[in-house]
């Protein structure tokens, strides 16, 4: 069996990549994708812990992951819809151009 550290390290790398993308990428579409990466990093952790866990029903982690995936799907749908409308108004999906929601 592959040791759990491998899964956790992989998930951490994935999460850091996602976090880097959210903070650094100018294109909002890529930012959205990177949030998906971060979510999936968490999902991997869930599944890994679920598989290695003893003494409790093994499906707890998987149930959580399915929940996360469905919520993430909805979130992406809403996010891309907002993004499309923003693009119609601003002719840009750049995060630097979408800064009017402030003081």
């Amino acid at each position: 069996m592959i040791p759990i550290e491998y899964f956790l390290t992989f998930a951490a790398i994935l999460f850091v990549i996602g976090a880097y993308g959210v903070m650094a990428k100018p294109n909002t579409l890529i930012v959205l994708m990177c949030t998906e990466l971060m979510l999936n990093a968490a999902n991997i952790n869930f599944v890994a812990f679920s598989a290695y866990m003893t003494g409790a029903p093994a499906v707890y982690g998987q149930v959580m992951v399915i929940m996360t995936i469905s919520v993430a799907a909805a979130e992406v749908a809403v996010g891309i819809a907002i993004l499309l409308n923003a693009y119609k108004v601003r002719k840009s999906t750049n995060a630097e151009d979408l800064t009017s929601m402030r003081w």
């Binding site: 959210v22 995060a95 630097e96 929601m101």
Partner: peptide, 13 residues
């Protein structure tokens, strides 16, 4: 509150 997504995300993280 500068409206920039990246700032917010950085602060959160």
């Amino acid at each position: 509150q500068d409206g920039n997504l990246h700032t917010y995300a950085s602060v959160v993280l």
